Computed example of a mutant assay.
Amino acid sequence: MSSLDQLYQQIILDHAKARHGSGLAGTDVPEGTSSGQSHQLNPVCGDEVTLRVAVKDGAVSQISWDGAGCSISMASASVLSDLAEGMSVEELRGVIGTFRDVLRSRGKITADPEVLGDAAAFEGVARYAARVKCAMISWVAAEDALNQAT
């Protein structure tokens, strides 16, 4: 295993243990803020995520989530919450699209850490079709919640 693969594996393990953004924020949103919430379930493996996003002035002002599932799904939600907060809505939509493209490529597209940050660690998941949905579940929830909020 290369040192980069080891680093990526460690990022996933760290986020699976210390889940950033975990714990749904309250439903009361300040004036001038819109919000959306999405619940996603993978019936094949049982991964489950509820994600809430708040948008103010065209940017993600808060993202929180709660869920249960494998290390990949929980780590992916944690990485997403770190990455998304403060991004413009359009920027986050672009990052979600890039993440989706990398994961659906079956290893043919290399993840750019400049674009995806720690989410680039999930590049290796693309080679395992059964795990792609695990990594994508929170990102699908974020996309749905953004659509509700905007």
Rank of each mutant, 00 (worst) to 15 (best):
A25M: 11
K17G: 04
E85C: 09
V95M: 07
V79I: 10
M1T: 15
L4W: 10
Q6L: 12
A75Y: 03
S105W: 15
V140I: 14
C70D: 12
A141R: 01
M1D: 14
G97W: 06
H15M: 02
A18C: 08
R93N: 05
S22Y: 14
V55H: 00
L7V: 12
C70K: 09
S88G: 14
S38I: 06
S22C: 12
G21V: 02
L24Y: 03
E91L: 09
S78I: 04
S64T: 06
Q37F: 08
V115F: 04
H15W: 00
I96E: 03
L83A: 07
R104C: 14
Y8S: 03
Q9R: 13
L24F: 03
L13E: 10
G46M: 13
V125R: 00
A16T: 05
Q10N: 07
S105C: 08
K108M: 12
G36S: 09
V125T: 03
S2C: 03
L116Q: 06
A18W: 04
V102C: 09
Q148G: 05
V60N: 00
A119E: 05
A75C: 04
A130W: 11
R131A: 11
S35R: 07
S71A: 15
V53E: 01
G36R: 04
L51D: 04
S38Y: 08
T98S: 10
D47Q: 07
L92E: 03
D144Y: 15
I63M: 02
E143F: 08
V125K: 00
R104I: 09
G23S: 07
S105L: 11
A120N: 06
S64V: 02
M87S: 09
